[in-house]
Design a protein around this nucleic acid. Sequence first.
DNA 1: GTGAAAGCGCTAACAA
DNA 2: TTGTTAGCGCTTTCAC
Lengths: 335, 335
Amino acid sequence: MSVTIKDVAKLAEVSISTVSRVINNSASVSPEARRRVLAAIDKLGYKPNQVARSLVTKKSNLIGVIVTDIGNSYVAQMMRGIEEVGRMYNYDILLSSSYGNPKTELKFAELLRSKQVEGIILISEDVDEAVIDVIKEFNIPFMYLNKYYKVSNLPSVSIDNYEASFMMTKYLLELGHENILYITVNNDKVGSVEKDKIEGYRKAMEEFKKDELILSTKDFTVEAGYDMGNILENLIDERNITAVFCCQDEIAIGLINYCYDSNIQVPKDISICGYGDTKMASIYRPSITTIKEPYYDIGAVAIRRIIKELEGDKIEEPSIYLPIQLIKRESCRRI
Amino acid sequence: MSVTIKDVAKLAEVSISTVSRVINNSASVSPEARRRVLAAIDKLGYKPNQVARSLVTKKSNLIGVIVTDIGNSYVAQMMRGIEEVGRMYNYDILLSSSYGNPKTELKFAELLRSKQVEGIILISEDVDEAVIDVIKEFNIPFMYLNKYYKVSNLPSVSIDNYEASFMMTKYLLELGHENILYITVNNDKVGSVEKDKIEGYRKAMEEFKKDELILSTKDFTVEAGYDMGNILENLIDERNITAVFCCQDEIAIGLINYCYDSNIQVPKDISICGYGDTKMASIYRPSITTIKEPYYDIGAVAIRRIIKELEGDKIEEPSIYLPIQLIKRESCRRI
DNA sequence: GTGAAAGCGCTAACAA
DNA sequence: TTGTTAGCGCTTTCAC
């Protein structure tokens, strides 16, 4: 068996309380006793059993994170922020992947709870009120991170999508583009950020007195972007489209792939920009003009807020918005 | 406070032992008592405290994973496999990122231990014997995953790099390429898989009676690949190089980026292949011919082996090699 | 089939 | 400054 506090106490010839005091620095211990305890700890290679400690202190120092899919680049970036900041404050991360299944999310939430996590971060790509309600009832700090939807009154960290979309559209307009296509993803659900982004696009187009043109694709994948290719090809001729604002980098990449395959040159023949600034956007050629969503920071701020709440701070504003950035790269040119 | 086994016992008017028996199905309980207990559990929304349970059973159902950086695509893929298979067997994942720092790895290893993890998976990119030794001493199932180094006699899951490299080189030769450049990364450390890969390349070149040409770059990054560009440009002229086998996809992508910027067409002017089959390799244009390292499976098999060991199976072979695949895409052409 | 009691490894009164 | 003791929430003998 592994060595316990008793073994240390015996070897150091003190009581277990004294050992406990030494390892927790919780009360004054005579230099002599401390020395003996430390020596014993060293000799035995004693490491306190955190499980036992948790049981009595009711502090697990665990924060549960439920993600859709850790294989998604942006999720991994958020995890980095979560992990790194959590670590600074001595919190460990219990990870579970739901693959977008609400049933699984629910199961994991309860599992995390039974493991006594002190807070939960849910990274979701859909909205399921049932899961949210259950987690809320746990009465522990909770952060809801969703790149695609807003849920009002839920503590979260995100960006101002309206502003970002407006900024990007304006940039394209200022480059001289007059006919700018916005590619969104079919979505009627309440809270979809696409609504805000479309508003931002519209606002800018109106300001420049240009006609809007919005098309939907089926989802946020490279394939969906690729599939928009032939429609775009027609639009270039028929509507003299010179720039496309894609609602996600993946779609932009798919579209540029189509162009590559069809000998349409980007940005010479058409300017294409994305949204998100995933890793790929900077590595791909042409490198992609996009909006940088600060994934790392979103994760970092989310866990920081949880820890603050754990430390007693009440969080005032449920939603925090982080600054975005327009990243100008090769895929969009002045016209 | 949250509801405990006592509350359930009181409401059901049985002893806590009976409640325990019901939730664990550990001994026969009269139908009537079971019914009452179940009703009480349901009414109170009772969830057993896993921490308390762990303390007595000495089973935490936790597996600790130390990764270099969850932001790396291949690490995230491995994590998927680890998480998903762990979940099937009811194990939770405690995640920590070392960012390659051995001191941090060590600290996390001990932290994980004190959290009573039942097994540890270390995903590393360097070799630090000290860390390995410490983890070994924990005497719990341990898997060592390292894409770049082999450490003999350590339980691990990897691929046969010699074979993979041989296969790829042979493929290029069979496409008609005669002068094939292999780009490796400067590395004298023992156990580097680059040694095996170079051997595989050599073997194939010898078999086809061609001269080898090997160059080193500084690390496994896109930038390092890009930096090889001008050297390659000269080599195309001077040595009539028609194909480049890069030891990692990132380097291949960097090199192709250079070509893109310098109006060298891939694969028309030069064929370039990579190694790893990261996500990027299939999305990038031209799509990249590469060796598929089965990251997901590596993670899945690693944790499965840990669980098997936890279940009492002794693991015979320390190292397991998973099958690789040659993925033929656009970046290499017949000559 | 069931309850009482011991104990997992630890912290935190409390008393000395 | 120190030791004794009670418990954290649970499982598991051991009697009955």
